[in-house]
């Protein structure tokens, strides 16, 4: 009897366990983030290290953001033109491209690109430092590893994400111009004329809010996964680092999209 009851409840037990583990993990990530944020302000400020990280996360990602932004804008222009032309309103192409970029694609695509480029490397680098006891070494020197490794990366992300998103938006609009105006022949004056009245300051603000939020999510999750790679089941050695990197990338991508939906619903 007891066995029968057990087997009935088994799936629920599992579900409960998984949910508790998931919530526990989210809580741990939140605490990790608060800890790292608090340590940003501990003196002396780590200006040099932060600048190095801005260079790595931000400056070195510029080229890829330019490329992706350009082609995203171009394809938006192309798709938008063929859809709008059916309704005879190809004139609003500029507004369509600009609004889709600023409201959605800019922050999301930028975040996804930085996850791929810098987020994975953050997780791997910190994970390797964990397995080779470099983090322990920091602790024995009384250097707070979260302050030393995580805080500069979070600050750097907060600086880099909005800037890269802005670059993405601008180059995307240029891309839309290339395909819409230069290739498909829309009037160039109309393209820009439509952007100006349709894009409100609120859209730009929303874009930056999203960029900040994504910056926090990506830096925190990627650093967290690397930092605590030794706590996960099977998290040993090179395999542990690879698992940590994979889950850092997957988890931050998913969370970026989920948070994007939540933020959009508040901002609209």
């Amino acid at each position: 009897m007891a066995q029968a009851t057990n087997s009935i409840f088994a799936p629920f037990n599992r579900l409960g366990k998984v949910s508790i583990a998931f919530l526990g993990e989210l809580g741990a990530i939140a605490l990790f983030f608060i800890h790292a944020i608090a340590l940003i302000f501990s003196l002396p400020l780590q200006v040099r290290k932060t600048i190095e990280q801005v260079f790595f996360i931000g400056a070195k990602s510029t080229l890829i953001i330019l490329l992706v932004g350009l082609f995203t804008g171009m394809v938006l222009g192309l798709q938008g033109y063929y859809t709008l032309v059916k309704f005879g309103s190809e004139g609003v192409l500029g507004a369509v491209v600009a609004l889709s970029l600023i409201r959605e694609l800019g922050p999301v695509m930028t975040a996804l690109m930085i996850i791929a480029r810098a987020g994975s490397s953050m997780a791997a680098e910190i994970g390797i430092m964990r397995i080779s006891e470099q983090i322990d070494a920091l602790e024995t020197m009384d250097i707070n590893p979260i302050r030393f490794l995580v805080s500069p990366r979070i600050v750097a992300s907060l600086i880099s994400f909005p800037l890269l998103t802005a670059i993405f938006n601008v180059i995307g609009i240029v891309g839309g111009y290339l395909s819409g105006v230069c290739i498909l022949g829309i009037n160039s004056g109309i393209y820009f004329n439509r952007i100006e009245p349709n894009v409100a300051m609120q859209d730009v603000k929303g874009c930056f809010i999203k960029a900040f939020a994504f910056g926090i999510i990506v830096a925190t999750i990627c650093c967290y996964q690397g930092y605590f790679m030794h706590m996960r089941p099977g998290g040993f050695g090179a395999k542990g680092v690879s698992l940590a990197t994979t889950s850092a990338v997957v988890l931050s991508c998913v969370l970026v999209l989920v948070v994007d939906y939540v933020l959009t619903s508040f901002l609209l």
Partner: peptide, 11 residues
């Protein structure tokens, strides 16, 4: 101060 078995140098 601690000297690690596998050195734990910052690579």
């Amino acid at each position: 101060s601690y000297m690690f078995q596998n050195n734990a140098l910052f690579d």
